[in-house]
Simulated scan of single mutants.
Amino acid sequence: MENRNIDFIVRRYRKGRFSPEAGWHRFGVVPVSAWHRFRVAAAVAATVVLSAAAAYIYKEYHVAEPTRQSTPVSAVSPLTEVKVIDFENAPLAEVVRKIETVYDVKVLNLPDNSSDYELSLHYEGTPTDLIAVINDILGTQMTVAEK
């Protein structure tokens, strides 16, 4: 430090004026009593002990979930079956063929100029919703029926 800085401190120093306790009091922070610290430590210790006890009890008495037997559902309509289908610059006729193959349905009212349309999309859902989306995009009137 320079001499000027030391002179400034020497001239203005007063005992107790620059103490940390006085600084904390100016900020409104009061020292915590030993009893308060003990209560906080006891609360933390109790939380740790209770958590450990709960984990032990859960591990010791946890009953495995009984196995469930699944029954096959045989009456699922292809019109409500959700599947994933992807197209990349595919002509509409190819898209319709793939929809009919994947969903096992029949697409009706394919436009005469289907070779003029190309689609790129990723779709997850039912064939009815997929054809509705294609109709909205291309302005066609196609419908879906079960085979």
Rank of each mutant, 00 (worst) to 15 (best):
E81D: 05
V49K: 05
P31V: 01
V63E: 06
F87P: 01
Q69S: 13
E21M: 10
V95H: 03
P20M: 01
E88L: 14
E60R: 11
D86Q: 14
A22N: 01
A45Y: 03
H36I: 10
E21W: 00
T80C: 09
A52M: 11
K83I: 07
P66G: 03
G28R: 06
A75E: 09
P20I: 04
S70Y: 07
V84C: 13
V44M: 09
V76A: 07
P78K: 04
E60P: 06
Y61N: 09
V44Q: 13
E81Y: 11
S51A: 03
E21G: 03
A42K: 11
A93F: 10
E21I: 10
N89I: 06
F27I: 07
A42R: 15
R68A: 01
R26H: 01
W24F: 01
E94Q: 14
S77C: 07
S51M: 10
F38L: 15
F87W: 13
K15Y: 11
T67H: 10
S77L: 11
E81N: 03
E88A: 12
K15N: 12
K83W: 02
K59A: 04
T80K: 13
A34R: 06
V63Y: 05
W24E: 02
A54N: 05
E65L: 02
T71V: 09
G16F: 12
G23C: 12
V48C: 03
W35T: 00
S33C: 05
R37W: 05
L92A: 00
V44E: 06
E65D: 01
F87C: 14
P78G: 12
A55D: 15
P91K: 13
A43N: 02
H25L: 09
F38P: 06
V82I: 14
G28K: 13
G16N: 07
R26E: 03
K15H: 13
E94F: 00
E60K: 14
K83L: 13
V40C: 08
V82Y: 02
P72M: 15
L79A: 06
A93N: 15
I57R: 08
R26G: 01
V48I: 10
A22Y: 02
F27T: 08
V84G: 13
R68I: 05
P66E: 10
A52R: 02
Y61S: 08
R26P: 00
A90S: 13
Y58H: 08
P31D: 01
E81K: 09
A53V: 11
R37A: 08
A41S: 05
Y58M: 08
Y61E: 02
T67Q: 13
P31G: 01
